[in-house]
Design a protein around this nucleic acid. Structure first.
Length: 591
RNA sequence: GGGGGUGUAGCUCAAUUGGUUAGAGCACCGGCUUGUCACGCCGGAGGUUGCGGGUUCGAGCCCCGUCACCCUCGCCA
């Protein structure tokens, strides 16, 4: 071994031991005579002293050391002289008096300094990604990847104890027409044919249930060729899981205990169980989102009935058309939001898809509303609307009038940005919730037909099974989404295990059995071969680690992430390939 | 594909209304320095202001185009 101890290990009681350390030169303080080196590895820093009175040649060599050189150094651990202890590092009571130094590797000057402090790097992300091998030496990245490892271990340990088996599924998979755009892989041995990288192991995990494996999980990479976001990478990691002979409640309770185990293991935090279970309808009504941030209040109210007879036509006509008028009371907003700020909110509302933003200020209830729409509402109407919205003196009232979903979503978007602006969102809370009872089908206006709310194999809510074919739009499914602090961190469902029901669903989606067979072929036979009731979930592993680490961007918890455009700045991928490679794959490039 | 933001030395930033030779800290190079821990002191080198074009007597600054990175809408069953 190159070392007897790590750089984070030695303490006062280790004094008088001899030790050998190996690591990177983090800092050098050269006094001409005595030279101090802070030696770094992932465990910490230890001060090494080179004293010319004790070892003159060694001190000379130490003068030549540079940042990020890799060295091995042996010597005596000794307490630091009185008055020179460093309280800022755990090894600050001791130092290593060097009597042997080996330079293992010389380093060229680093483009940026290796910052051990936690938190945001001062260096531009573009530079960090170009030199990721240096960026990963930073304290924050070391901590994040350690946390990621701990989360994965906690999940495996928990699921193993619950009799789950980790089983691998293929990356070279069949292209399927539904869902996200896929990455394609040409098959050399089969000219003109392609594999697709899986968006998720969905089909395979259901097959494992049919095969009798009962309880499966996998921490697995998934691939989607869609545009990126702060929380989306083209390849990302899921905790994928499926269980047989389980009702929806069994799956939810299992995942609750799993998340509790992860937070306990990673942060030492206890979280209260069970999580709230919120029907989709209620999530939209109260928070204007299917992934509500429950860390703060400011809930949305429905005032459609209170404005139905109003002379303000934007409201009354929306109500008459069957739309909704929703209201959001911003506490203290009357004083805080001046005309220019309200205009900005209106711009935001338009960006969220609203036609406009109606508003009123409630300085003092006795004095009535102020603002452009105040004149349309008499004292009684103002009182009723105010009461429904929960408005108090000094509040700003915001209104959205549109179809139900849009009206909710607009105020939901404003709620989030106002909450952030006003500092209402506590950073250190973990507010979990399940969103359930999603619509089984959405009507696609583009194609004029029904599309699956979740995926094609999602089971129908038992209370709605009878009306599914008569009223697809009013049918709820057994989908469940896991939400944490306003982020969707998982989604799944109880699956259809009965071929007759699956055939009905294909029918509602406008697919004949022949078309279904063409698209899903073998899977129909799988379902007909004796399929147990089963269901599962996929958790967004990167997102969970990011939230646990307090990071807003999943790139901060992925060792080698892609840029916003899906490229790798360090390796320079993607890149062109040779004509010979293309030739072997029977591929010709378009001009 | 649409909207917004950023781009000046290796890194982080500055540069009055368009005005002379584009500055600072850190890093780098040379010298000095025996108890520092953001060590200190003296000196030095380092720039196609992302790239291309335009306006102007004169452009880091204004205009057009383009590229890269970030945020976001669409998209992500």
């Amino acid at each position: 071994m190159y070392r007897t101890h790590t750089c984070g290990e030695l303490r006062a009681p280790d004094a008088k031991k001899t030790a050998t350390l190996a690591g990177w030169v983090h800092a050098r303080r050269d006094h001409g005579g005595v030279v101090f080196i802070d030696l770094r590895d992932r465990y910490g820093l230890t001060q090494v002293v080179f004293n010319p009175q004790e070892k003159p040649q060694l001190a000379d060599l130490a003068h030549t050391l540079k940042f990020e050189d890799v060295i091995e150094v042996a010597g005596l651990v000794r307490p630091r002289p009185e008055g020179t202890l460093n309280p800022h590092i755990p090894t600050g009571q001791i130092e290593l008096a060097a009597d042997r130094l080996t330079i293992l590797s010389r380093a060229t000057p680093s483009p940026f300094e290796i910052d051990l402090a936690p938190g945001r790097s001062k260096v531009a992300e573009e530079t960090r990604l170009t030199y990721r091998y240096l960026d990963l030496r930073r304290g924050a990245m070391q901590r994040n990847l350690l946390l990621r490892h701990k989360a994965a271990i906690a999940m495996r340990k928990f699921l193993d104890a619950e009799s789950f088996l980790e089983i691998e599924t293929p990356f070279l998979y069949k292209s399927t027409p539904e869902g996200a755009r896929e990455f394609l892989v040409p098959s050399r041995a089969n000219p003109h044919q392609f594999f697709a990288l899986p968006q998720s192991p969905q089909v395979f995990k259901q097959i494992l249930m049919v095969a009798g494996f009962d309880r499966y999980f996998q921490i697995v990479r998934c691939f989607r060729d869609e545009d990126l976001r702060a929380d989306r990478q083209p390849e990302f990691t899921q905790l994928d899981l499926e269980m047989s002979f389980a009702h929806q409640g069994d799956i939810l309770s299992l995942i609750e205990r799993l998340m509790a185990a992860v937070l306990k293991e990673c942060l030492g935090r206890e979280i209260p169980l069970p999580f709230r279970r919120i029907p989709y309808r209620e999530a939209m009504d109260q928070w204007g989102s299917d992934k509500p941030d429950l860390r703060f209040g400011m809930e949305i109210a429905d005032v459609t009935e209170a404005v139905r007879a109003s002379p303000f036509k934007v409201f009354s006509e929306t109500a008459a058309r069957g739309g909704s008028v929703k209201a959001l009371a911003v506490p203290g907003g009357a004083g805080r939001y001046g005309r220019a700020q309200v205009d900005k909110l209106a711009q935001k509302a338009v960006a969220l898809g609203a036609k406009g933003l109606a508003w009123a200020k409630l300085e003092k209830a006795a004095a009535g509303w102020t603002g452009p729409i105040a004149k349309f509402f008499d004292a009684a109407a103002q009182k009723e609307i105010g009461a429904r919205a929960g408005a108090k003196d000094g509040d700003l009232l915001l209104f959205a009038a549109d179809n139900w979903e849009k009206a909710c979503a607009v105020l939901g978007g404003l709620r989030l940005s106002i909450g952030a602006e006003m500092g209402l969102i506590p950073a250190d809370r973990f507010e979990f919730a399940w969103v359930v009872e999603f619509p089984m089908f959405f009507h696609s206006e583009a194609d004029g037909k029904w599309v699956a709310g979740h995926h094609l194999f999602t089971n129908v809510h038992p209370e709605d099974a009878a009306k599914m074919e008569k009223d697809p739009g009013g049918t709820r499914s057994l989908q469940h989404d896991l939400v944490l602090n306003g982020h969707e961190i998982g989604g799944g469902s109880v699956r259809i295990h009965d071929w007759e029901l699956q055939r009905k669903v294909f029918g509602i989606l406008g697919m004949t059995e022949e078309e279904a067979r063409e698209k899903f072929g073998f899977f129909i036979d799988v379902l007909k071969s004796g399929a147990p009731p089963h269901g599962g979930i996929a958790l967004g592993f990167d997102r969970i680690v990011a939230l646990v680490a307090g990071e807003e961007n999943i790139r901060e918890v992925i060792a080698f992430p892609k840029t916003h455009k899906g490229t790798c700045l360090m390796t320079g991928s993607p890149s062109r390939v040779t004509d010979k490679q293309l030739d072997e794959l029977h591929i010709q490039l378009k001009k």
